[in-house]
Design a binder for these strands. Structure first.
Lengths: 348, 348
DNA sequence: CTGAAAGCGCTTACAG
DNA sequence: CTGAAAGCGCTTACAG
């Protein structure tokens, strides 16, 4: 421990000189090539350890034309700070990070707010990465199609889109929206609001599931109950306050995310109404907090961490020049307190 | 737009050939050297654009011996997933990311759970980074001292330590613990618990602030009220349940983080007691959620995003071979509902 | 203002 | 099993 020389990191040639072998042999020994005699290998490894030698990664990356780095880009439409703090992203990031680590890849986090994803293509970040994972499509589906044509493979979390030319992984949004809405109808609600910006592809799909459920039950769609709330706390409060003040009748809401649902609950509480008694709420994502909230949150579970793994595995296949199909992960309704169903039924 | 050739990225030599100049001139033109005639420069830039040429970053990094990447390592003692999801980390990460972006640096996120930080030194992550920011010291202060001796500059978020040889940035933990405790004493509480693992340096300092406040008011320290709760939801619940069941008298608690405080509040609610009426709670960090929680959270504010900036600025100074002093950021008490103070007083 | 040339530190066919 | 050698794509003194 203590006897390690604190020398400036030797170059591979210097280590080779010390060992009395060629640079090539050192290189092979360090990468555990079977073509080097075990004894030589052991000796070189010991010397490397002793002299505290480490391969210059920048030289190695250059030579090998790869960096072992995967870039993760969060596609957020508004200010990044608010969005990134959505536990949904964090859990996704966690799933991705774990899976990347298992495959000995590093994670480069790209600065999020970008008006034009194409700028990313010119950036150092992009050049330095072996592949890129986009979380969300934002409203830049077409630009992602352009990026997909580059040499750097990409995988995108999002909704299936017409003319899509990139590999996609996403949740089953139609079913998610449908399940949430049907559940609220089943517990007797009839004036169900939909909180979410339907210009975003994923939200649009959930909204179509919402409409399908209403149709099935013969409930008429009330356009005033669809509110374009972005994924952000502050905005949610304002918009919901507005709805509450507008006196438009509603007794339930399907929300675009759990964070939005929590925010809605807080706003509703402040206005003197109660959840679920006056207004039943269903969230989306099933973030960790959902089961600790008060009331506990009925929500549509997306297996976020697993989604992260699928994204990474898909990217790895792409890196191996394989053809990769899109993946749609199933959605599951988790019934807890906020939707006003009888307790005990399928709760977690 | 459409007329861009979709050619394989040309090498700089190829672009030079097209332009009829030398590789060196292209290199200088692209880095906007004043030593190239404006006209030539413009012509080369146009050609680069036309042929969709981009500098090979891996070659550039190698040549320049820097990557433009800063690595961020979260020093977590237990399972990473739970910790990383603490908004404290996210907000810190956000502050760091913003500041790095302003300085045109990229952010590499190192996989968190590590038993021995020294392993990091051998990793590709470390070699690839121009500098490393550690969030927290965990219990590895000594190993951080070792890493500080390497060529890669590091900055650490944490508590001042004896014999510390790395650059440190941290909050004023003693004052924070003191302010939280004094506030609870001022609102009439006398049996104040302290929730936090005092074997962690920062928590130990807050605990000393806590003791100082008790001493000042002549309140005797009750050792049974100091509970080693790690920064994690699940554990918090168990430990607090245990305390509640032990019938040890307590009417308030200073918590190691806001997340812990929120968890404590949930646990207390479930046991049938109320916050702040039965038990007053003060958190730590002032995460975004604190003002939306119910009850809203009295807490010690650490200006987390600014802390992120200070970490980055310190690292940059180190990268410029400057001597950098430690920074201690001030702590501020934010009074809201959970501590049972009269409303309106300094609340946000 | 531009070019010719050296060299960053590594890996890997190619020989032997 | 090991060595000699080429070359990855760039930047930057050094000349001119």
């Amino acid at each position: 421990m203590k006897q390690k020389k604190i020398t400036a990191p030797t170059t591979m040639q210097e280590l080779a000189d010390i060992a009395g072998v060629s640079r090539g042999t050192v290189s092979r020994a360090l990468s555990d090539s079977p073509r080097v005699k075990e004894k030589t290998k052991a000796r070189i490894l010991a010397l490397a350890e002793k002299h505290n030698y480490r391969v210059n990664q920048k030289a190695r990356n250059f030579r090998l034309r790869r960096s072992g780095v995967v870039c993760v880009v969060f596609m957020l439409d508004i200010k990044s700070e608010q969005h990134m703090s959505d536990p949904f992203f964090l859990e996704m990031l966690g799933g991705i990070a774990d899976c990347l680590a298992e495959h000995d890849l590093d994670l480069l986090l790209a600065h999020a707010p970008m008006t034009d994803v194409l700028e990313l293509q010119d950036s150092r970040v992009f050049q330095n990465s072996d592949g890129v994972i986009f979380i969300g499509q934002g409203k830049q589906h077409d630009r992602l199609n352009v990026i997909a044509k580059s040499d750097t493979p990409i995988v995108v979390w999002g909704a299936p889109m017409p003319g899509q030319r990139y590999c996609r992984v996403g949740g089953d949004n139609v079913t998610g929206g449908y399940l949430a809405t049907r559940h609220l109808l089943e517990v007797g609600r009839r004036h169900i609001a939909f909180f979410g910006d339907v210009s975003l592809p994923e939200i649009a799909l959930r909204f179509s599931g919402y409409k399908k459920a209403l149709r099935e039950q013969g409930v008429k769609l009330d356009r005033r109950l669809q509110i374009d709330i972005p994924f952000e706390m502050q905005h949610a409060r304002e918009s919901i306050d507005e709805l509450l003040n507008s006196r438009t009748k509603f007794d339930a809401a399907v929300c675009g995310s759990d964070v939005m649902a929590l925010s809605a609950i807080a706003t509703i509480n402040e206005s003197g109404l109660r959840v679920p008694d006056d207004i039943a709420i269903v969230g989306y994502d099933d973030i960790g907090l959902a089961r600790y909230a008060s009331p506990t949150l009925t929500t549509v579970r997306q297996n976020i961490r697993w989604a992260g793994r699928v994204l990474v595995e898909s990217l790895l296949s792409l890196l191996n020049s394989q053809v990769v199909a899109d993946t749609t992960l199933s959605s599951e309704l988790i019934v807890r307190q906020s939707s006003g169903a009888q307790p005990g039924k399928n709760s977690t």
